[in-house]
Design a protein around this nucleic acid. Sequence first.
DNA 1: AGTAGCGCCTGCATGC
DNA 2: TGCATGCAGGCGCTAC
Length: 276
Amino acid sequence: MPELPEVETIRRILEPALTGKRITGITMNKQKLRFPFPENFKKRLTGRTIHCIQRRAKYLLFYLDTKDILVAHLGMSGSFRLMSKQDLRVNAHDHVTFMTNTDTIVHYNDPRRFGFMDLVDSRKLNCHPMLRSLGPEPLSEYFNAEILINNLAKRKGAIKPALLDQKLIAGIGNIYACEALFRARLSPRRSAYNIRGKRAEYLVEAIKNVLIEAIEAGGATLRNHQDPDGKIGYFQNKFSVYGRDGKSCENCNCNHGIRKIIQSGRPTFFCSTHQK
DNA sequence: AGTAGCGCCTGCATGC
DNA sequence: TGCATGCAGGCGCTAC
């Protein structure tokens, strides 16, 4: 599923359901997802208690009572599903199942297997290859106009692909890049280094606001994905541009409406009248 | 050194 | 109906 708001939504559902619970068994029916599972995956997790669940960018971090952290990334199609033991049913693409010392079990489902799981020593979390070059968390105080301007200064290309670069800002994906640029009234084709001063301030505000609103809505649900508790988010109903090509722009009376273009091989949706 | 393109996978919508 | 094609919320690797 997952951009930052969707991963945060999942975290908020899993945390109360799993905190303090002990993993009593693990079932896996694939050797690897995107990458092989780490050595002794089952052994290192079985018997461990989950202390808390945090998030960094689009990664879920399960802190255990050992020094290990279970790092999980959902790729394009990963999801978690909470169930009780009496309803235990394995669906297609349930690749990992966690049993606990309570009635709670968790399935990790991922049809495309672009996600992955790893175990990392908590003291070395920031050295993990997938985490060490991540840029600032957009909802933290460390993400502000000054930082954004700095990070964009050396970028030659357009702003929209730059927003997808996790080294510059962590957690934004294709939907929220499009939505944030619409809110900031900035063209996705504008040069990244050209965003300074007020424009950078508007963009920072737009990014923070769209992410916060999406989290409050329980994330966006596309293609029948479900949250761990079986519910769906509804932010997809509040998209201003994503997937709305050919429709009219809510903020102007232009004739062209919302357009779809391809940037760096990925679709971008915008209104060329509203966004400059 | 920064950036575009490709590949990894499956499921779904579309069009013939 | 059946099949081929294109497309999808991510990201690392490669080649320029």
